[in-house]
């Protein structure tokens, strides 16, 4: 078939469309590559969280930004890679303040689901308890920065009608935060605000007036990651 490439994932022969990212191609072949910052609803994958790190012909690379090529040899589930993914998720837990019992997103949170997947009982790294603010100023949203994992989904996806950024990455390093435009936050339509809250994998971007709306046991990640 034209435009089709053949490659292997953990020794299994796979086929996919040329130009597909490894994450997409793997999923098309029934293989799940763990991801966090990647979302099929957001264009321009950025390779920020690195939890999709795989071995591509022997070298480490993020599966969400690298594209499959003919004859590529990809390894996803090696012990070393799995432990690295686990460590990355643990690092996210200590980097912010993730008080799951007090979070509206608990049970529907992608970070939590990833941690459940890896059966993380306690992170190997010491907690940092950073001081982060809560932004109530947007008309429809509350931003709980303690829970932000800087995946940049909102930065990439949410734009005004004339294409301006609504969210942007401020500062750098451990001080990095994702902030909302003060002007647009006051005027943005409810639909756009809902979209922002939906795209957020964790409990950082919350739609005002919503929360704890389903009992434990019926939420997205209660039964499986």
């Amino acid at each position: 078939m034209p435009g089709q490439v053949t490659f292997t994932i953990d020794g299994k022969e796979c086929k996919a469309q040329e130009g597909q990212t490894i994450v997409e191609a793997a999923r098309a072949n029934g293989i799940y590559v763990p991801t966090l910052c990647y979302s099929k609803y957001v264009e321009n994958p950025v390779g920020a969280c690195r939890s999709c790190t795989v071995k591509i012909n022997g070298n480490n690379g993020a599966a969400c930004i690298n594209r499959v090529q003919e004859g590529m040899n990809i390894q996803v589930y090696t012990r070393q890679l799995e432990d690295m993914r686990k460590a990355i998720i643990e690092a996210l837990f200590v980097e912010g303040n993730h008080f799951c019992p007090a979070c509206e997103k608990s049970g529907d949170c992608e970070l939590q689901a990833a941690a459940y997947r890896y059966r993380i009982m306690a992170p190997r790294f010491p907690y940092r308890f950073p001081s982060r603010h809560i932004d109530f100023s947007p008309k429809h949203l509350v931003l709980e920065h303690s829970r932000c994992i800087l995946c940049q989904r909102c930065v990439r996806k949410i734009r005004t009608e004339d294409g301006k950024k609504v969210f942007a990455y401020h500062h750098r390093g451990a001080k990095g935060t994702v902030e909302i435009d003060p002007e647009i936050a006051r005027t943005m339509p409810e639909e756009l605000a809902r979209e922002a809250a939906d795209i957020c994998p964790v409990g950082c971007i919350n739609f005002k007036g919503k929360g704890f709306d389903r009992p434990i046991g019926t939420r997205k990640y209660d039964k499986e990651p």
Binding site: N97, A122, Y127, R132
Partner: peptide, 19 residues
Amino acid sequence: VSVGECAIMGGLPALRNNI
């Protein structure tokens, strides 16, 4: 054995940790 979120990460009492 650390039992529960508070033993593991400070839990709700630790909300004060950056104040």
